[in-house]
Amino acid sequence: MADTGWPGCAKSLKGVILDLCGVLYDSGEGDGVAITGSIEAVKKLKASDLQLRFCTNETQATRDKFVAKLQRLGFDICVSEVFPPAPAAIAVLKERRLRPHLLVHDGLLPEFDSVDKTNPNCVIIGDAAEHFSYQNLNEAFRVLIGLEKPVLFSLGQGRYYKETDGLKLDVGVYMKALEYACDLKAEVIGKPSTTFFQSVLNDMGLQPHEALMIGDDLLNDVGGAQHCGMKGVQVRTGKYRPSDEMHPTVTADGTVDNLAQAVDMILNQRGQ
């Protein structure tokens, strides 16, 4: 009989999806720092017979830029393996013929170079960090409140994340602020949206039950993956807080100290 619990489920896995920030590395000044054992753990996964993808709500830089950063930190990772929200957002804009007002990090702007931004009829917010000033939020607010049918896209809906100098508010907080101000509901592009996870599964050609998500965010990584039909494992690194293990609605299939431990447990189960 198939073992459906963690870590027994690892025997029948065909693919693993990893979150980046808080699992591979902690962001902060410069490139941030790799989390102990993670570089080696990614290597081991790549050497195994499992497919590997990276699914991130990273929106402070273009995909090329932050993949290059991860490579500098020592990770074996390439652009085509990484799924961030911005390219998915651009596809939605094209499909619905929308012109965005952008409240995103300067580092992300080049992703939108080819997008028509004149006379905006929607707003996209990403993790703009220090660009989340009163003035910039107000500008986004005024665009929305001036539209007959305001449309707000949020690249992720995270509450906070950890940088080397402490916890920082994430885009979800500002999404909620604008939702409240304009009395609307944002459309989330990125984790935990099922569409977003599904696009990664499609790329691997796998069914949800054949894949496992490992992340540090209980709601967006673990809860989102589980909602989509995957298993979700939480690491005790990054933004993890002990209270996550007593969450009223989301229970991880497994909780491990870090990525290295998760990968060793998976490969052990598979006799590799």
Binding site: R142, I145, K176, A177
Partner: peptide, 22 residues
């Protein structure tokens, strides 16, 4: 939000809501 001479501006509610969510 509230009204300024040059248009509407965000009130404290959105920021409180954001902190509540976080």
């Amino acid at each position: 939000y509230y009204k300024q001479k040059d248009g509407l501006a965000l009130g404290p509610g959105p920021f409180v809501t954001g902190l509540e969510y976080a």
